[in-house]
Design a protein around this nucleic acid. Structure first.
Lengths: 350, 350
DNA sequence: GTGAAAGCGCTAACAG
DNA sequence: CTGTTAGCGCTTTCAC
């Protein structure tokens, strides 16, 4: 970090306000921090002095004594390789999921006057950097969103005893709070809907099967279909990207041209799959009914509009943030998990 | 006997390292900050002591004395209304543009060990909050990305003499550094390509015409087509969203069914327009050639793949970041603008 | 209910 | 080349 001169002219300090108000620094501090036991009249004087001087508290000074930064990190982390020409972070935002998480976090944080620090950690090196960053006191804790199941960062956070909350249950149990969706319930909703629409030759496009959520959506769907008397459900695996949905649907068309319904494990893959059905002369929903998952922006960007399973990502992200703040507030707080319920959103594709 | 929480090992300070290394705090500080004039042998001793103690510098303390935070804000700002149920930030990431900016900023910042703070400012209140946040010393400066032309934040930043860099030239000149694209050049590239493909009945879908970039793309396209002997170019206006591209293409089809080429001012609108052409029985590119703009993820998510004008957003965002750091380093640095050149990317749609 | 004073951990003169 | 010293601006006992 290069050191230069201060970027802005010195701003007023507590001392200046105290002088203007004719009180001590301590009193001004009390007023600012909303501590009782300050005479209302003096409070008013102080407030005016603050307004008159244009005082804003210096966060570094405050943080130095309170040992709290009042800010948190939003860490998007993976477990793969990162290449120079195709850095991890460039792809992350292609999936609407991360935008929704960011939105939920910001929505919760902003009314509280706090703003998240955005970090990406994909390699051992960047993970170490992220941990060091938190240990330096740049943020009080982290919201963790993994792109892959085997992400080592959650465990590292726990080992460093840094407050953190996860999106989605980790594949192996570790003592960390998380929020998740009842994926199996969502998959059942999709199955029930396809059956209700009279579909009997149904297939599915699954997400990457090392991801618990993808497993749950697949097994939940198969179990529900089995309960409806359809024990065999053809499946093509994708990786949650649009292109993989396209490819998976091509395979399904080649191997099972007679299908009349598909459950696709996320909307982005469904968005890729719809044009493929069209190219094969299938009308949606008349010939093939399609149910997606997530109710992301891809669902309304698709034509026809996607019938899908709502995944309240923004609400879940807000809840994560609430949990994190609680953990920061009380480091001894017991870890908890909060499971959200999905719902069916009927549009045009099924 | 009270059962407190398990003893949290207070993290080591400079003092601890100094003691372990048998030197003074100042020397350790010098080693950490890479200041010359330290005996190599002592440097080595200090490094070992740092490793042994697991020392990490406390940023608040450093920031308090240097008056620098070593971090910057990435502010996405608009000028419209914000409603409870449909907050600004939830829509922002639906456009691949912001993800690309974030990616470029992070790509530049991360090797330098710094992470951006993410902020959204859409209302007067949130703008004031953003300014206050910077004035508090939470960040040394800001990367500003506006969603609308009349965004008041750039001027506020200048008035508060906070270092800032803009994406795109402001509609009215203010003394602030920015990066931008030669939009007219890009539009000309599109026009030349459509002409080279033999198209003679060409229309365009423009972006919102209060945005300078949208104006430039439209006027640049019209001027280039005029130079090719086509002075009249029908135009439908959109607002850079997928849905608006869809609607604009419907209007074009209704009013000018005979067109054989379209220039669409961004890829997202083009992605919306392509299915409309199909629904009207037009093959792309055989019947109607389509050229988009931006070369965003929407270009490769479209079918057929979009021929488009490359907008090097990530590089531009990296350059913004470089400029911002330079301004932070030297507050007296003269404002500059950097204009990037677009290029034609030929794929399947034209 | 209010003020005085002691640092939080670090950097930056200034001596030596 | 290295150590000493003086704060940065704030919160927080502890007296009054």
């Amino acid at each position: 970090m290069s050191l230069g001169r201060p970027p802005v002219p010195a701003s007023p300090t507590l001392e200046d306000v105290a002088r203007a108000a004719g009180v001590s620094r301590a009193t001004v501090s009390r007023v600012i921090n909303g501590i009782r036991n300050v005479d209302p009249a003096i409070q008013e004087t102080v407030r005016q002095a603050i307004a008159a001087t244009g005082y804003v508290p210096n966060r570094a000074a405050r943080s130095l004594v309170t040992r709290r930064t009042g800010s948190i990190a939003l860490v998007v982390s993976g477990a793969g390789e990162e290449s120079e020409e195709n850095p991890f972070h460039s792809q992350v935002f292609a999936d609407p999921f991360f935008g929704r998480v960011a939105s939920g976090v910001v929505g919760f944080l902003r009314p509280r006057g706090i703003h998240p620090t955005l970090m990406f950690a994909e390699t051992d090196e960047t993970r170490a950097q992220a941990i060091a960053y938190l240990r330096q006191g740049n943020a009080d804790g982290a919201i963790l969103v993994s792109t892959e199941a085997r992400d080592p960062l959650p465990r590292l956070m726990v080992e460093a005893s840094l407050p953190a909350v996860l999106f989605a249950r980790p594949p192996e149990p570790i003592p960390i709070s998380y929020v998740d969706l009842a994926h199996r319930t969502g998959a059942k909703l999709a199955a029930d809907h396809l059956i209700a629409r009279g579909r009997r030759r149904v297939a599915t496009i699954a997400g990457p099967l090392d991801v618990p959520a993808a497993q749950d959506r697949l097994s939940g769907f198969r179990d529900a279909m089995a309960a409806h008397g359809h024990p065999y459900i053809p499946c093509a695996e994708g990786d949650f990207t649009l292109a993989s949905g396209e490819a998976a649907m091509e395979r399904l068309m080649a191997e099972h041209p007679g299908i009349d319904g598909v459950f696709i494990a996320n909307d982005l893959m469904a968005q890729g799959a719809l044009p493929v059905l069209r190219n094969h002369g299938r009308r949606v929903p008349e010939d093939v009914a399609v149910v997606g998952f997530d109710d992301s922006s891809a669902a309304t960007a698709s034509r026809p509009l996607l019938t899908t399973i709502r995944h309240p990502v923004e609400d879940m992200a807000a809840e994560m943030t609430r949990l994190l703040l609680a953990h920061v507030d009380d480091p001894d707080r017991a870890v908890t998990s909060v499971i959200f319920e999905p719902s069916l959103v009927v549009r045009d594709s099924a």
